[in-house]
Design a protein around this nucleic acid. Structure first.
Lengths: 181, 181
DNA sequence: ACTAACCGGAACAGGATCGTCCACTTACAG
DNA sequence: CTGTAAGTGGACGATCCTGTTCCGGTTAGT
């Protein structure tokens, strides 16, 4: 592959992530192309159709999050690690992209085994962290990883929430075990 | 107005609310017409364009919620009343409609003074209830009506949340004052 | 029974987006 | 320096979708 082609490929994925974050999953291909500084023709040579591009962006994103989560797992205090991870995911820039990706039709994503694999690993990693928080006695027993995942999704995927981090902290306060008395 | 025309008018608003709840604010007029058991022609005789119809549904909805809120204000225990009101709004059927209405362009709604008036009254009523809850000492001082409104919106407007009531309760747990110690 | 109001849905118009195609440009090997 | 194959960009055709109009047929109400 020629050097300029390689560079454009990178710009395309990057631009796609930005534009999807700003305009949702329906963002026109032409807009992505313009942002990347290329023509739509170039887009379609790299990604045969819109689904392929969305999947590529999705894979990129999940890989990123999963790596951060792996780091959280290496910390000794699970509850603190969970809170830190939540705060990290709540970063507004990331959230908007997650929101767009959440609306991408499942079949476009499911076609990529690598994406599916990482998404499953993501779920398992959260579950492990939650289990450790339970063991530490810091997390209400009636709140599991399902709840955590839902809350993350709700607060990060919806750009109309002004300060997702703030709300997630309130939420975690609600989920923390009450000391008896 | 002929009796059958009157009846159809009612069916249209009702059907529009249902369809908007299921398909979001982009729901096609044809779908609403079919659900109401009328032709699109009938729709357009009552509501000159799509904006008018959406505004009518919005007004209907806000009136409903405001009335329920007025009832909450008459209860002696503000914190309990707030929790009960939140649970009521979280009813899944209502939430989906609220979600659709939240996406309706502001200008379509702002054209209806009655709607604007009621929406403002809604905000004030929540603020009054929250102030009383503060006075009772049941609500964290750093959480105000802004937070309550945001949370209501986040959990009720997004149909992908499985059990909004459950999450709102967790949230309210987080917002409740901690007894010292 | 008569008529004016009402009805349904086919058809039309406008707009948006995807994906193709091809004439032009550029990297880079020899 | 130069030839050429890889790369590029954006006009354009095809498709789809939805709001709105229009009118022949129907019906409530007198």
């Amino acid at each position: 592959m020629r050097a300029d082609a390689q560079k454009n490929l990178g710009k395309i994925v990057e631009a796609a992530a930005e534009v999807l974050a700003e305009h949702g999953d329906q963002a026109p291909m032409a807009l992505i192309a313009r942002r990347a500084g290329v023509g739509v023709g170039t887009l379609y040579r790299r990604f045969p159709d819109r689904g392929e591009l969305l999947a590529a962006v999705g894979e990129h994103y999940v890989r990123h999050v999963t790596e951060r989560l792996a780091r959280a797992e290496r910390e000794p205090d699970a509850w603190a690690a969970l809170r830190a991870f939540v705060a990290w995911v709540a970063d507004p820039g990331r959230g908007a992209l997650a929101g767009a990706l959440a609306e991408v039709p499942e079949e476009a994503l499911a076609a990529r085994p690598e994406f599916v694999r990482m998404r499953e690993e993501y779920g398992r990693a959260v579950a492990r962290l939650v289990a450790r928080a339970h063991a530490e006695g810091r997390l209400r027993p009636d709140a599991g990883s399902t709840e955590i995942m839902t809350l993350l999704k709700v607060f990060t995927c919806h750009p109309e929430v002004p300060d997702p981090g703030r709300y997630l902290e309130l939420m975690l306060d609600g989920l923390e075990s009450r000391r008896p008395g």
